[in-house]
């Protein structure tokens, strides 16, 4: 249990061990640990980011879906309005057409009637003249009596 040269031997051994540990043991081991720590930290960060991205994307999707729904509703609304408008317009146009056709018909009828009246008047006047001719049974100068006939026609 006395101090002797063993001390020197141990001192050298100790120094060599520490030196060896410092050169060949500590740096690779700690390097590996630290690199892994960094990797894990990076991985966690990436997963957190991905999660956030996903959340954002989901929010965006929801927003877009809402927009699309609103747009669709608007389009349907517009279409409905347009349809009713078209129906209205067509109805109106139909009405107008009908009115026009009716008016045309009425005018034609009126013209026909006037024409017939005119014809009738002419024929009646001719008949009246013929009648008068026969009644008078004598030659009457048609030209001399034309004014009377015209007067008659006017009165008809």
């Amino acid at each position: 249990m006395n101090i002797n040269a063993t001390l020197i031997g141990q001192l050298i051994a100790f120094a060599v061990f520490v030196w060896f540990c410092m050169k060949h043991v500590w740096p690779p081991l700690l390097g590996a640990i630290e690199e892994r720590q960094k990797k894990i930290a990076d991985g966690l960060e990436a997963s957190e980011k991905a999660e956030k991205d996903l959340e954002e994307a989901q929010a965006q999707v929801a927003e877009q879906l809402k927009d699309a729904k609103a747009q669709a509703a608007e389009i349907i609304d517009q279409a409905k309005k347009r349809a009713s408008q078209i129906v209205d317009e067509e109805t109106q146009r139909g009405h107008a057409e009908r009115e026009k056709i009716i008016a045309q018909g009425n005018a034609e009828i009126e013209a026909e009637r006037n024409r017939a009246k005119e014809e009738l008047r002419k024929q009646v006047s001719a008949l009246a003249v013929a009648g008068a001719e026969k009644i008078l049974a004598r030659e009457i100068d048609e030209k001399a009596q034309a004014d009377i006939v015209a007067k008659l026609v006017e009165e008809l």
Binding site: L7, G9, L11, A13, F14
Partner: peptide
Amino acid sequence: TDLNLTFALAIG
């Protein structure tokens, strides 16, 4: 349990 060793460590 050898003083030489513990003293070697301590002297280092």
